[in-house]
Design a binder for these strands. Sequence first.
DNA 1: GTCTATATGGGGATAGAC
DNA 2: GTCTATCCCCATATAGAC
Lengths: 223, 223
Amino acid sequence: MKQTEAPSTKERILDAAERLFAEHGFAATSLRTITAAARANLAAVNYHFHSKEALIRAVFARRLGPVNQQRLQLLEACQARAGKGPPRLEEVLEAFFGPALRLGRGLAQSGINFQRLMGRMYGEPGEHFRSMLQEQFAEVAVRFGEALRKALPELPPVELYWRVHFMLGAMAHTLTGVDYLPLFSGGQCDPSDVEGTVRRLVSFLAAGLRAPVAPRQASRSRA
Amino acid sequence: MKQTEAPSTKERILDAAERLFAEHGFAATSLRTITAAARANLAAVNYHFHSKEALIRAVFARRLGPVNQQRLQLLEACQARAGKGPPRLEEVLEAFFGPALRLGRGLAQSGINFQRLMGRMYGEPGEHFRSMLQEQFAEVAVRFGEALRKALPELPPVELYWRVHFMLGAMAHTLTGVDYLPLFSGGQCDPSDVEGTVRRLVSFLAAGLRAPVAPRQASRSRA
DNA sequence: GTCTATATGGGGATAGAC
DNA sequence: GTCTATCCCCATATAGAC
């Protein structure tokens, strides 16, 4: 393991930005606040990142790269285990959720901050985030899409899209909700139990994905 | 039906704010932009709403009141149908999702804007939103919590909390994703089909909520 | 209720010395 | 690579005339 040396200015800015963006949102966090927290000079942001928008991209890229790489790696492993047959649905889901949710464990507080960020990213307005999401997830989307189609051969593609959409929502909310769930469960649920979270999320979603396709109900009211 | 008269300044501001908040987020939308779009004077915001924060609350309260009222009404109906037995899970879910998702139909574009807003609200940072959520949903949360416990008598309460959490995530993402899903499905999914959306969401989530509780797996790696 | 004008503060970005 | 100083713009909020 690499010795933990004094982090560079660039890294301190990334760390501070990650934390503050997670706590207060992007628009509400000023570069001045970030550089103050990072014990760096205001101009350093523009020197290292050129603009606030580029800083945001850098914050995401730093963590999302490794996460997505690990996702693809786990997916390959589970496809290898399946041989020529369809991969097991639960394993595909775990390959997708595991790396993201385990960030909170590997990086301690920093990882938790990033989890919140990642979850919020999906709902963020503006074209900037839209395009970032598409870039970052392009390959992962294709590969996991294929795997899910194979794991659920009976499910019509349109229905699969819908269900993947629901699934991403559940994941995003689980990521942001690290501090939400204990609140409304009266402390009964503990999101710091990462493996428990993954297990619960996977079994919930696997059941949802396997649900029989609901028939178009006879139109009872023509509202 | 009430005649559609020229809306008052107050209403025009609410409409414009709703749309612009939905499109660009809260922090990124200035009162100047809002009043310009509403063809109102900048000072009118402070006259009618006192502050930007209060304006945000007003935007939510205007729609959420009726939605929650309708939710409780539908829940009562479905409990009445069940008599003394447990209510049917699918009906409980539909009572919860239906009113929110049907906003997009009843109010046309305005409703779609509000859907986006409502979905994003869950992920919004800051204590202000946290407390708004709790106020607005206090009664609904209690009543639907009870109903779900009755509909799923076998499920341990802790697991129910987790699953409700996942469920809210799927709903929030469905609300915000009105324009997201058609994009990545290549136009194959049509969120303007409200009843289809409700039906799909309900059957997906009902299956997830009914999933067998995953056993704590034997720890294979002590990572 | 609606306007103009303004108070007051903070934002992102950059020039140029060191 | 890091700093100070500054440009220029926009934000919310309010005072006070109409």
